[in-house]
Simulated assay, not measured.
Amino acid sequence: MTASNSVSATPWSDTDGQKPLVELRGVTKKFGDVTAVDNIDLDIYAGELFCLLGGSGCGKSTLLRMLAGFESLNSGSIKIDGVDMSDVPAYDRPTNMMFQSYALFPHMSVAKNIAFGLQQDRVPKNDIADRVQDILKLVELQDYGKRKPSQLSGGQRQRVALARALVKQPKLLLLDEPLAALDKKLRKHTQFELANIQEKVGVTFVVVTHDQEEAMTLSSRMAVMDAGRLQQIGTPTEVYEFPESRFVADFIGSANIFEGRVTEDGADHVRVQTDVCDVFIDHGQSVKEGGKIWVALRPEKIHITKSDTPVTGENQVSGVVDDIGYLGETSIYKILLPNDQIIDVTAPNQTRPMNRQHLITWEDKVNISWEPSSAMLLTS
Score class of each variant (00 low, 15 high):
residue 339 N to C: 13
residue 303 H to C: 02
residue 343 I to R: 00
residue 57 G to Q: 10
residue 77 S to P: 01
residue 90 A to Q: 04
residue 166 L to C: 08
residue 204 T to I: 12
residue 287 V to S: 10
residue 262 V to R: 08
residue 161 A to G: 15
residue 307 S to P: 09
residue 359 L to S: 12
residue 5 N to I: 08
residue 225 M to C: 01
residue 53 L to M: 09
residue 274 T to H: 09
residue 81 D to T: 05
residue 378 L to Y: 04
residue 270 V to H: 02
residue 19 K to T: 15
residue 345 V to W: 00
residue 106 P to W: 09
residue 280 F to Y: 15
residue 92 D to W: 04
residue 52 L to G: 10
residue 352 R to I: 10
residue 344 D to R: 13
residue 53 L to P: 02
residue 109 S to V: 11
residue 266 G to D: 09
residue 103 A to E: 06
residue 272 V to C: 06
residue 19 K to G: 01
residue 37 V to C: 07
residue 119 Q to W: 02
residue 91 Y to S: 10
residue 321 V to A: 02
residue 78 I to H: 00
residue 247 F to G: 13
residue 244 E to K: 15
residue 286 S to A: 15
residue 145 G to N: 08
residue 104 L to D: 12
residue 242 F to S: 07
residue 302 I to R: 00
residue 270 V to K: 01
residue 364 D to M: 02
residue 7 V to Y: 00
residue 264 E to R: 14
residue 203 V to G: 02
residue 123 V to D: 09
residue 198 Q to P: 07
residue 29 K to Q: 11
residue 72 S to R: 09
residue 349 N to T: 08
residue 59 G to I: 01
residue 257 I to P: 05
residue 10 T to H: 08
residue 123 V to P: 08
residue 346 T to L: 13
residue 58 C to A: 13
residue 270 V to R: 01
residue 362 W to P: 00
residue 129 A to C: 04
residue 359 L to I: 03
residue 107 H to M: 05
residue 345 V to G: 02
residue 150 S to E: 14
residue 27 V to I: 09
residue 89 P to N: 06
residue 333 Y to H: 06
residue 113 N to A: 10
residue 223 A to K: 02
residue 30 K to P: 05
residue 218 L to M: 11
residue 144 Y to R: 14
residue 91 Y to H: 15
residue 345 V to P: 05
residue 212 Q to E: 06
residue 169 Q to S: 15
residue 38 D to L: 00
residue 131 R to E: 12
residue 78 I to N: 02
residue 144 Y to P: 02
residue 106 P to K: 09
residue 244 E to I: 13
residue 153 S to A: 10
residue 373 S to Q: 09
residue 311 V to A: 05
residue 303 H to Y: 04
residue 74 N to Q: 11
residue 53 L to E: 05
residue 91 Y to W: 12
residue 161 A to L: 07
residue 254 S to D: 15
residue 155 G to A: 08
residue 292 K to R: 15
residue 101 S to I: 11
residue 206 V to Q: 08
residue 288 K to S: 14
residue 233 I to E: 01
residue 159 R to P: 06
residue 231 Q to D: 08
residue 299 P to Y: 03
